[in-house]
Amino acid sequence: MSSELTSPNTGPQGFDPDLLDRMIGAMGDAQVIETRCQALIQALCGPLEEAFQEAANIEISARPGDIHQGRRRDLLKALGHDAVYCESEIPGWSQEIASLCGTKLIIALVECLLGGSDPEDLDIVARPLSAIELDMSLLVFEQLNETLQTIVAKSVPSQAPVGNVGKGNAGKVAADKSVVNKPLLDIPEEEDDTLPDFHAAALTINLEFGNSSTPLTLIVPQSVLLKTKRIVGTAVKKPGDASNDWTERLSERVSRSQINLQAAVALAPLPLGDISRLQPGDLIGFADNGDIEVTLSANGKALYTCALGKSGSQYMVKVEGPAGPDENWRSDFS
């Protein structure tokens, strides 16, 4: 299904700016853009499935979704709900690519790759991503951009200038590595947006993982699609054994993440009536006599038992041992 989002805009002396954009190749006929988008989505789905399988050893089905046309900012506003935003470029094709991925897919991937959950058992509710989940989303956008670059390299005529770079060709597209910027939780405000509000097309691929389906949307300039007249599908084969790449990268991000710690000390028990009458300045003793035992926790989970001490004027704790038998507590920090 295709739809077109338009914003009223009138040029000097009532001249239609859309007509001018058509004349200079910045805007295409709706049916032409629709046809190019359908061809590109069909070419992307199979290789994208294979890219996910190669990179993470997980099965994600990619199915063609809706196509929308309109100004870039209007498309982002309409499609950017419950999604993470990422800008990217493919040298020799376009420097103005934007993508949106629903948060439910990222949350589910982190739970499965880090905690070993079965995708079929997950019941994910869309929410803002944590810092680790936001880092993880980069891997999804990398797979999309690298797959797109492979297709573009085979689709652009070998000697023709392509995209909105002005001097690239298919050899350039194939040789230079695509660039994926750091994903963002929110779409930039218009005054902070570094990309122009050009005529764009939004191509959605529905990614089915477990029992859920999440939209992955690619937003590209119509001018780029008009210059990419022959879209050829291709299989994606990545060199080397990358089956554990996502899990390893995610574990590395978890290990490097800054986590807030809490130290809890048991106090002497008091009757409820005495507790209700506590006033500022009252003193409560520790439950332990002699060495004070402290439980070190993070994210509400007990990690280590410690001894309370002092170094100079600063109180400190000395780790003495694990707080429990759970050796997989890192999976709770996603």
Rank of each mutant, 00 (worst) to 15 (best):
I284F: 09
C37H: 01
T10E: 05
Q149F: 06
P8S: 01
S276G: 07
I284R: 15
V232L: 14
I24F: 14
N211Q: 14
C306L: 02
T295K: 12
Y85K: 09
C45V: 13
I107R: 14
L76S: 11
A175L: 10
G102C: 11
V317Q: 05
A43I: 02
V319A: 12
I41L: 12
C112A: 02
E142Y: 08
N206G: 04
D193M: 15
F198D: 10
A126D: 15
C45P: 00
P47W: 02
V84G: 04
F198K: 06
A302F: 02
L278M: 15
T10I: 14
P12G: 05
E293N: 12
L122F: 05
I205W: 03
D282A: 05
D176L: 14
E133G: 01
G116R: 15
A108C: 10
V236S: 11
G166Y: 02
V173F: 04
A153C: 05
L203A: 07
V224N: 05
W329Y: 01
F198T: 07
F286H: 08
N289P: 07
S155H: 11
L207A: 07
E191N: 06
S276M: 15
A51V: 02
N9P: 01
V140S: 14
A307C: 09
S2I: 15
V220D: 00
G321P: 07
D135L: 04
N299R: 15
L109T: 01
G11W: 03
I187L: 03
H81D: 09
N164G: 03
W329A: 02
P183L: 14
P271E: 15
L308N: 04
L113A: 09
N244S: 14
I231N: 04
L303A: 11
I284W: 09
A153F: 07
P47R: 02
I90N: 09
L185W: 06
D332E: 09
P17D: 03
L207H: 11
Q95G: 04
A62G: 03
A202F: 05
G70T: 00
L105P: 02
A287N: 10
E120C: 10
Q53L: 13
G92I: 05
I151S: 03
F286E: 08
V224T: 15
P196A: 09
L184P: 05
G312V: 09
R256G: 05
P8E: 01
L216P: 00
Q222Y: 10
P8Y: 02
A51K: 08
V110Q: 13
K238P: 00
L225V: 07
M27Y: 00
K227A: 06
D176S: 14
Q69T: 06
I132T: 10
T217Y: 06
R63T: 15
D176F: 14
T147W: 00
S117G: 04
H81W: 05
L134W: 02
V319Y: 09
G70E: 00
I60R: 06
I187C: 11
P12S: 14
Y315G: 04
S243M: 10
S255R: 09
G312Q: 13
M1R: 13
R277K: 12
I97F: 05
L48W: 06
I106W: 01
L109H: 03
